[in-house]
């Protein structure tokens, strides 16, 4: 019984806090300005194994991004193709030595991406740029203000060291 009790405890000792990963996408506007779309609903986890970091799948619901304006939230979601594919999925992630690769599926298009990352003990912070045209997204423009096709992405995923 004690063993069962202990097993139960061990089973359930986590995964740490409830904190999930987060994503920030910095978007530039023309003629001027910018905004950051943020989501704190990145799902999935990372595994460490002898210096290598990997993940089967990380995903985020596209309607979870907040840009600071409700109308812009709607436009952002639609632009990313949330009506046809509600989630962006990164699969087959492998990383070591500050660099990594994975396969990103967005707007029905799957492409390999590469990224740089920093290992901050319990958090992996990865940064990369994306070109929306690579994922067959149309050039975004609203009432004369254009959105840059190239955006900067920062992903934070909890990955505690054992």
């Amino acid at each position: 019984m004690k063993k069962t009790f202990l097993n139960l405890i061990l089973l359930l000792v986590p995964i740490q806090s409830f904190a999930e990963g987060s994503i920030q996408i910095a978007v530039k506007l023309t003629p001027a300005g910018s905004f950051v779309a943020k989501s704190e609903r990145l799902k999935g986890d990372l595994t460490r194994n002898q210096g290598e970091i990997s993940s089967q799948k990380l995903s985020v619901s596209l309607d979870s991004f907040k840009t600071g304006m409700s109308l812009r939230d709607e436009h952002f979601c639609k632009h990313l193709g949330c009506e046809s594919q509600p989630k962006a999925v990164l699969s087959g992630l492998k990383a070591s030595g500050g660099k990594g690769t994975g396969s990103l599926e967005l707007n029905g298009v799957k492409r390999d991406i590469s990224f740089n990352y920093e290992d901050k003990d319990s958090m992996i912070v990865a940064k990369f740029e994306l070109n929306s045209t690579d994922f067959k997204m149309p050039h975004a423009k609203y009432l004369g203000v254009e959105v840059s096709d190239v955006v900067s992405v920062e992903v934070r995923v909890p990955a505690p060291k054992k």
Binding site: L12, I15, Q56
Partner: peptide, 13 residues
């Protein structure tokens, strides 16, 4: 909360 997290990850996998 930790128990919830565990089963959430299990179902996610």
């Amino acid at each position: 909360t930790p128990q919830f997290e565990f089963f959430k990850k299990a179902l996610g996998k």
